[in-house]
Nucleic acid binder design. Structure first.
Lengths: 230, 230
DNA sequence: GTTTAAATCATACGACCGTTTGAATTGCCT
DNA sequence: AGGCAATTCAAACGGTCGTATGATTTAAAC
């Protein structure tokens, strides 16, 4: 039985229990980010994890379930941190206006910093950027589970920070902003191509400052749509 | 020999020559956009095109070459139209300032309108949005061929339309802006999720107006980075 | 020490993959 | 009519895929 099922009352094995599962998740996360979901076979994952092939279908039901498990495992702390930062920003604002930049920082900060969270160098951000554009229906099916609460919280936060905008406009600018983030995460090759010989800054603080400034400017311009119509 | 090789002096067959090749490209374009590159097999393509399996490797050397052919075929007229519109915008501006919105319209307009260009309904925009995030090195290798001239022209155009910005900042905002576009094209599911019960506008004019407004606001905010520092 | 369930293992299944081959067919040319 | 290159075709190649099976090993419970 799966070691996460504790209903039997059996104590989890300290030596090996859970180790294999974690090794699979780690290897899968790394390979998915590097080569995509379809191009990464279970054999490559189990070989990298130094684990038997059948253990994937034992611990997870299928490859698709493994993908979902990889995403949920990494998204959970990121989303928790997002809400944490949003809570702080809202408390800081009090009755006064909620700063758009603070909301955006709460949204993108935890993702950009997810690289060093795992302890070792993981390229999960690249994987996350890949998720949105992955074909198939399964990715849309995990939206509610993966970012249901986050979406709900940031929906109202963005509406509060963009008082001039209507709901639909705010959602569109949220969508565009997420696009900027996802594209930065997933397509570093294009940035290198655009910059030509210039080197791309990898410092998280600088990147976040640029990204948030771009997002805020775009969202405010879209929110002010009504007034500037002509 | 491939029908596009006219060096033999042989006149291309009017009845069948070129027909198979086009059928393959059409079917491949549709299936690639719908299910991605890796998940679309040559057998599914040839079945949809009602063409023999081996004809893919006859007309194109390999699956990867077919992918490149699909992309180039559709990108060429789009890029030509982009440069056409940019020429018009620059001529219109004359010695005066180049409007950022005009440059952005020239960049995104042809892509958003690519749906109806093929005559029938094609979902090439979705395919294009997929390209940037596709794993593997081959996509980075076709950047120069696919948008080399376009990138060069728009690099200088954006620099001219954003006089306050430095080169690096302009390239970053260009990257973010492309991200918004690509994400809109590739991930309509997320927009639907964000909008909840609200319906997403599909009218090209309205979408383009929103997108350009967002991009322009973001790029200007990033260009003004120096002055607003603190 | 025996029992028992969880976990790992080697192995195999059927399906599908991209590509190749060589023969059959087509249709323009002389 | 005959030649010939371009094209289409059925069939097969070797590989890899996700998943399933049944035996084996592990270690906690009694």
């Amino acid at each position: 039985m799966d070691s996460t099922d504790l209903s039997s009352g059996r104590v989890e094995s300290a030596l090996r229990g859970g180790v294999t599962k974690e090794r699979i998740l780690d290897a899968a996360e790394h390979l998915f980010a590097e080569h995509g979901f379809a191009a990464t076979s279970l054999r490559k994952i189990t070989a990298a994890a130094q684990v038997n092939l059948a253990s994937v279908n034992y611990h997870f039901r299928s490859k698709e379930s493994l993908i979902v498990a990889v995403l949920i495992r990494k998204m959970s702390p990121i989303n928790a941190r997002r809400i944490e930062l949003l809570d702080a920003a809202e408390k800081r604002a009090g009755e006064g206006p909620l700063m758009l930049e603070d909301v955006l920082d709460a949204f993108v900060g935890p993702v950009l910093r997810a690289r060093q969270e795992g302890g070792e160098a993981s390229n999960f951000p690249k994987l996350l950027g890949r998720v949105y554009t992955e074909p198939g229906d399964w990715v849309a099916r995990i939206f509610p589970q993966a970012l249901g609460e986050v979406a709900a919280r940031f929906r109202v936060a963005f509406l509060k920070a963009l008082p001039a905008s209507e709901f639909v406009d705010a959602m569109w600018s949220m969508h565009f902003a997420i696009g900027s983030l996802a594209h930065y995460l997933a397509a570093p090759a294009l940035l290198s191509f655009l910059l030509q010989e210039e080197a791309a800054t990898l410092d998280v603080e600088v990147v976040q400052a640029r990204l948030v400034r771009f997002m805020a400017g775009g969202m405010r311009a879209l929110a002010a749509k009504k007034e500037a119509a002509g």
